[in-house]
Amino acid sequence: MKPELKLHNITTIEDANKYLRDVFVPKFNNKLGHDIHRFKLAFADSPDDETINYTLAVLSPRTFDSGSAISYKNHYYQATDASNKLICFAKGTKCLVIQALDGQLLVTVDEKVYALTEIPKNAKVSPDIDFETEKIPHNR
């Protein structure tokens, strides 16, 4: 660049700026530049929150047991539909547990998606049927 300014007898900053703006930049752009309107934008629209939530999910294969339940992270779950109605599957049915980015748990079987409802682990006694027995201290 410096030899080109010397070739045109440019010695001041003002003359250099005028030369760059009026001569050099247009000549450079005509030679090497491209029309930016000819190219489409490389950026896509960002996905909505719901798409992000389900795209960044953790998927875990599981198998339904004889009680139509699956175990996931030491908890037991059953599949329910949109109206919270229990959906039963045969023992050995393969499924895929989906833990969405927001923590929501879903299960998919044969390309259908169901909600997961946690069920309690088996208790030693049934509160509806069994009665608590009073412990009598033994005196010696």
Rank of each mutant, 00 (worst) to 15 (best):
F64K: 00
I129G: 06
D22A: 10
Y19I: 04
K2F: 13
G92T: 00
K91Q: 09
N17S: 13
T117C: 08
L105G: 00
E111P: 02
L41V: 06
N17R: 15
Q99R: 12
K18E: 12
N30I: 05
A16K: 01
P120R: 10
A82T: 08
N17F: 15
R62L: 03
K2Q: 13
K18C: 05
L105W: 00
R140D: 13
T11W: 13
Q78F: 02
S71R: 07
C95Y: 05
S68L: 00
H75I: 03
T108D: 06
A115H: 15
E118L: 11
S71T: 13
E50N: 05
K40Y: 08
F43E: 12
S60K: 08
E134V: 15
D128I: 09
R140A: 09
E132L: 14
N122L: 15
I98F: 03
A115R: 15
T55S: 09
H138N: 09
L101P: 01
D128R: 14
L5V: 03
H138R: 11
E132M: 11
A16P: 05
E4N: 06
K112H: 14
A42H: 12
V107A: 03
E132G: 09
P137N: 12
I129W: 14
T93S: 07
V113Q: 12
K2Y: 13
L41Q: 11
I10C: 04
N84D: 14
T80E: 10
S68W: 03
D15V: 00
H75G: 02
E50C: 03
D130N: 15
T117D: 08
H75P: 00
D49T: 11
A90Y: 02
H8C: 04
K40A: 09
T55V: 05
P127V: 08
A82N: 12
K6C: 09
D15C: 04
D35E: 07
S126W: 10
T108Q: 15
A79E: 01
H37Y: 15
H138S: 08
E111G: 07
L59T: 08
C88S: 04
K18L: 10
L101F: 12
T63K: 10
E50G: 01
L106I: 00
L56K: 08
F43H: 10
P3D: 15
K112S: 12
D102S: 09
N30R: 13
D48R: 03
F28P: 01
S71E: 12
P61E: 07
D48V: 02
A100Q: 05
K91F: 05
L86I: 10
S71C: 09
H8F: 07
T63A: 05
H75V: 04
D65G: 04
D45Y: 07
F64P: 05
D22I: 00
N30C: 07
T108H: 04
D45K: 11
D65Y: 03
N9K: 14
T93V: 01
I36L: 13
A100E: 04
D102Y: 05
E134W: 12
F24L: 04
G92K: 01
C88K: 08
D102N: 15
E132R: 14
E132T: 13
L86A: 08
L86H: 11
K31T: 11
G103D: 05
L116C: 04
K18V: 02
S68I: 01
